[in-house]
Amino acid sequence: MKKIIGSIIKDNPILMMGLGLCPSLAVSTTVNNALGMSAATFMVLLGSNIVISALRKQIPDDIHIPAYIVIIATFVTLVDMLMQAYLPQLSKSLGIFIPLIVVNCIILGRAESFASKNSVSRSIMDALVMGLGFAIGLTAIALVREVLGAGRITLGGSGSTIKIPGLSSAPALVFVFPPGALIVLGFLQALFRRLGEDRPEKNSEVKK
């Protein structure tokens, strides 16, 4: 368990490895969108990891990238259609960024570096850890942006909001706009580096 938590911080796809940035920043204006995006990405990641690891012996080496892309694109289309049918509101607010999950480097990256070499069960585990890391990174960015930029937190589909006294009357609007996202990401990345680095140092001190 500790190992999983450690790898969520240390190998966090967004904050430590810089993968999957494009869609994540654009949808991180509210926590709600961030969770929706994480769920969609997770479904695609899980599906493509399972299929690719199951077919890893059948897919010829020369064309493995196009084959992966087709598999990923199929799952993205699936998720896109499911979202349009059951969560039209969310699907509308994520817009063009759902089809863009295809080119999210996390998914192709995991397919290439993990699912193509490991068994199905291990690939499912990998998808869970990566998906969770992606969700945490994305939600962290969204939380900072929504709290500072709008002075509120929106919870779930019910639309209930928590207003933060002081901030909700005079929010720092810049955080809702694109520049704010980049700045928040920069500082969060530095923070996560700090967190990831402290861990082994502390452990070695205890051992001594």
Partner: peptide, 8 residues
Amino acid sequence: PIAFISGG
């Protein structure tokens, strides 16, 4: 990180 901040 500093690249992101300056990009921002």
